[in-house]
């Protein structure tokens, strides 16, 4: 290990995910440092979302290791991984549209809440105190994104526009005070201007939370250029390049992967 390893929050070593004969991820070694924003880019089907899915436990690894804060989480079930301080958004919105914004955001804080039947049914006062605390935190977070959103806290998620739904998803990912947040195509389904807006908001909130580590998967290169400290380029499940966006974008191997051979 290098001297840098103290500073590494997430590391994948020889990480392989196979779907039948297809290698979605092939012996992937990626380090994510504390406090950085890492961009994960690559052509369609290169394994970006698979990487997010395997570290959040949605898929299981065929081989290799994932360490989060030095702890091996390779074999952990999805529902345990959030307790190591990892949360995420999804490429296609996974809000529960028929539930209120409040219910959706509360899910993000689930592991800090008391789930006991006695507490929930009988001790209604302490349940209400928890609900109040979550509502306050949710209002604060929502306000950073859009000052009009806190007033919609008890509206059903389905009544929100695309951009506000994305904001709610990000709030849900942040309310549990994670160490590492995975953002899977935050610009998907939004216009260019909306994307710019959400990016500014993400950067703003990152500053206010201080040193949040983010992995972001994105096709929108303008966004990647603005927010990332470092990029990893994947192709066919392999890392083909890593470094600052400017250097990566100029790399002939990367250009070939995106545009095909001349």
């Amino acid at each position: 290990m290098t001297g840098l390893s103290n500073n590494v929050l997430l590391e994948s070593r020889g990480l392989t995910v196979r779907f039948g004969g297809l290698f979605a991820l092939n012996e992937l070694n990626i380090d994510v440092h504390n406090g950085e924003v890492l961009g994960l880019i690559g052509p369609n089907g290169s394994g970006k979302t698979t990487f997010l899915n395997v570290i959040s436990g949605v898929y299981s690894a065929s081989a290799g290791k994932i360490l989060l804060g030095g702890i091996d989480i390779t074999r952990e079930k999805a529902h345990n991984i959030s307790s190591y301080g990892l949360s995420r958004t999804f490429q296609r919105s996974r809000l529960c549209l028929s539930l209120s914004v409040f219910d959706n955001i509360a899910l993000g804080a689930q592991r800090t809440l008391n789930n006991g039947l006695w507490h929930n049914i009988v001790q209604r006062k302490s349940f209400a105190a928890e609900a109040r605390k979550i509502a306050e935190e949710a209002r604060e977070l929502l306000h950073v994104f859009n000052p009009a959103l806190p007033d919609k806290l008890f509206d059903p998620a389905i009544s929100l526009g695309m951009i506000d739904r994305r904001r709610v998803e990000i709030c849900r990912a942040l309310i549990g005070k994670p160490k590492l947040v995975l953002l899977d195509e935050p610009s998907a389904g939004m216009t260019h201007d909306e994307t710019d807006q959400v990016v500014d908001e993400i950067l703003g909130i990152r500053k206010s939370l201080g040193g949040l580590t983010i992995i972001i998967v994105e096709h929108e290169m303008g966004l990647i250029e603005r927010v990332t400290d470092r990029c990893v380029v994947l192709n066919y499940g392999k890392k083909i390049c890593e470094g600052k966006f400017r250097d990566v974008a100029a790399d002939p191997v990367v250009r070939e992967a995106y545009l095909g051979q001349a």
Partner: peptide, 25 residues
């Protein structure tokens, strides 16, 4: 009208989101 009810709904509506945020389906 409690967390239990909310978690039941989330488990019904989206098992993936539920388990990623720590609910044991």
């Amino acid at each position: 009208r409690s967390w239990v009810g909310v978690w039941f709904d989330v488990v019904r509506l989206d098992e993936t989101a539920a388990s990623v945020f720590g609910l044991k389906i």
